[in-house]
């Protein structure tokens, strides 16, 4: 079942970044958004979830309402000056359900604690968010996103500030959590291997070359498509469930 569908959508701030395109996010799907820096991945993400209005075309909700969504931004986007505890940040995920001008109930605080437990951060509940490491902050933001019981989880390069081991571990946890909670995921990433391993569908976008392609991961994520997307020779090697990516050094194509 579709959660969101874009029809003949044109996205951008003033001028369209891409020719009109169609795109849908289905229930249970894990959609990876790939593309070079400045290629419009963030704009596509924001347009898809309604943070940015479409320049033309339609955003359709086949359920008759927008899906409940949780959003995890890149770590540096959050200003560490705020004196909020980890638990207070996680509770924010329920503010949409609590409603404007209403106060959180005991059940909301319990739900926030339960989410902290799921990401293994219970002992950090009363720690200041700003005092946590980059990886811990992203876990807290992930718990916040899950706290609103989302149907759709939106991850905007959320492991970009982490080392490769921590990033791979967190992505694997997200995939497990999303499967357990039956949540669809859209994730913007620069990690082709992560896209190959965790996505069921892929969107490739590069506004500078007016490229847009969407499809099943096993069909679209090919060496040829990736080489075209990044303008560099890229080869893929399947090793069991995993895909190893080789990027040829040298001048861009």
């Amino acid at each position: 079942m579709e959660l969101i569908r874009l029809e003949k959508a044109e996205i951008g701030y003033k001028k369209p970044l891409l020719p009109p395109f169609d795109l849908s996010v289905r229930s249970g799907e894990r959609l990876a958004v790939l593309g070079p820096n400045g290629g419009g991945k963030g704009t596509l993400l924001k347009s898809l979830i309604g943070l940015l209005p479409l320049l033309s075309g339609k955003r359709v909700f086949p359920n008759g309402r927008p899906p409940r969504a949780g959003y995890v931004p890149q770590a540096p986007r959050i200003d560490p000056i705020y004196p909020l505890t980890a638990l207070q940040v996680v509770l924010q995920g329920r503010y949409g359900r609590i409603g404007l001008g209403r106060f959180p109930k005991a059940s909301d605080w319990r739900a926030a604690m339960a989410q902290l437990e799921k990401v293994g951060m219970t002992e950090m509940a009363s720690a200041l968010f700003r005092s946590l490491s980059g990886g811990q902050r992203q876990r807290i933001l992930l718990a916040r996103a899950f706290c609103g019981e989302p149907e759709l989880l939106v991850l905007d390069e959320f492991t970009s500030d982490m080392d490769p081991v921590a990033s791979a571990g967190l992505l694997a946890e997200v995939a497990q959590l999303a499967d357990r909670e039956r949540v669809s995921v859209i994730f913007v990433t620069h990690e082709i291997q992560a896209a190959a391993l965790y996505s069921t569908a892929v969107v490739m976008v590069d506004a500078r070359r007016s490229q847009f392609a969407a499809g099943r991961t096993e069909e679209l994520l090919t060496a040829e498509a990736l080489s075209r997307l990044y303008g560099q020779n890229i080869s893929l090697e399947r090793r069991g469930e995993r895909t190893v990516v080789f990027v040829e050094s040298g001048r861009p194509r």
Binding site: K46, I49, G50, L51, P66, R68, A69, G70, Y71, P73, R77, I78, D79, Y82, L84, V89, Q92, G93, Y95, G96, R97, L100, R144, A145, G148, V154
Partner: peptide
């Protein structure tokens, strides 16, 4: 103030 995008995403 803390995170405008998440606030909008949850429907505020």
């Amino acid at each position: 103030s803390f995170d405008r995008d998440m606030a909008q995403t949850v429907g505020l």
